[in-house]
Amino acid sequence: MIQLKQVSKSYGSQRALAGIDLEIPQGECAVLIGPSGCGKSTLLKTINRMVAVDGGEVVVDGKRNTDYAPEVLRRQIGYCIQGVGLFPHFTVRENIAVVPRLLGWKEREIDGRIRRLLDMSGLPSSYLGKKPGQLSGGESQRVGVCRALAADPPVLLMDEPFGAVDPLTREKLQLAFNQIQEELKKTVVFVTHDVEEAILLADRVVVMNQGRIVSNKAPGKFAGLLEEGFVKSFLGNEYPLRLLKRYSAKALHLEDKPPWTNPLQGGAGECLTQETNLKEVLSEMMRRNEQALPFLLQDNRVVQVEYMDIVHHLHAVSK
């Protein structure tokens, strides 16, 4: 869907991108991550030509992006940035309607589309008449995502979209984003400097440093990744621990686990559900000082999950 071939860009003597090759298949979410100044935002902006490349080419949907007029190209690419950039003098409705209007949609179509988007993003329709100044940070981020998705573009570019909100709101937004992405399967390029965010959202994590891609793998595949220099220091020694959050207990194939044998002192309330993520499971083990925990399945069986199950799971995905 998106291909970058030998893309380079310099600002004066500063090399922002040094020959980037990257391919993002349709429906995947690629997260670009790296320290500030590594070129990740620049890379993102070369895709919709907000930044003109010095060399190489960017192919979107089988066509070089320089073959489109910039406006035409950009109307097919959703864009969402930190600080949102909502138009303060437009209502929420007008903000979301910008691209559909540019594309000449009928007002009735736009109405229907907006209703669906609001529904999806969990905003009440009473917000349509509000101005951005009346929204909280999290709400305006949601509107920003709606605006980016408004014309149903196949490609979505997001530049630290959740960077400026508090951690709790950010987590909610990330979950909402994952849900939306699961439903819509857009091709997403997402820039962040937050490793945890990358792990949660990415189909592939693209680590950048000094204008180059130093690693490009699915987030679970950390085997061999954490041994050398920059990637190790950037993703950190706790990477596997952070990775736990990406998987829910369901990933452990609970139905194959042995039944729980000890009596349940606290009744069924003591059991965890299969939606619990593995990080929470681990921390629950620590809290209860146990190496095994009961899980309640949908067919009301109670099974036992052990500490080593988690370790083995991580080991299995990492290769």
Partner: peptide
């Protein structure tokens, strides 16, 4: 005018004239 606002106007495919007129 906030840079993010002008940037997103451009990134959404507004022409310079549209950016001037409506943003």
């Amino acid at each position: 005018v906030e840079e993010a606002v002008v940037d997103s106007a451009a990134a959404m495919g507004m022409t310079p004239r549209q950016i001037f007129r409506s943003v």
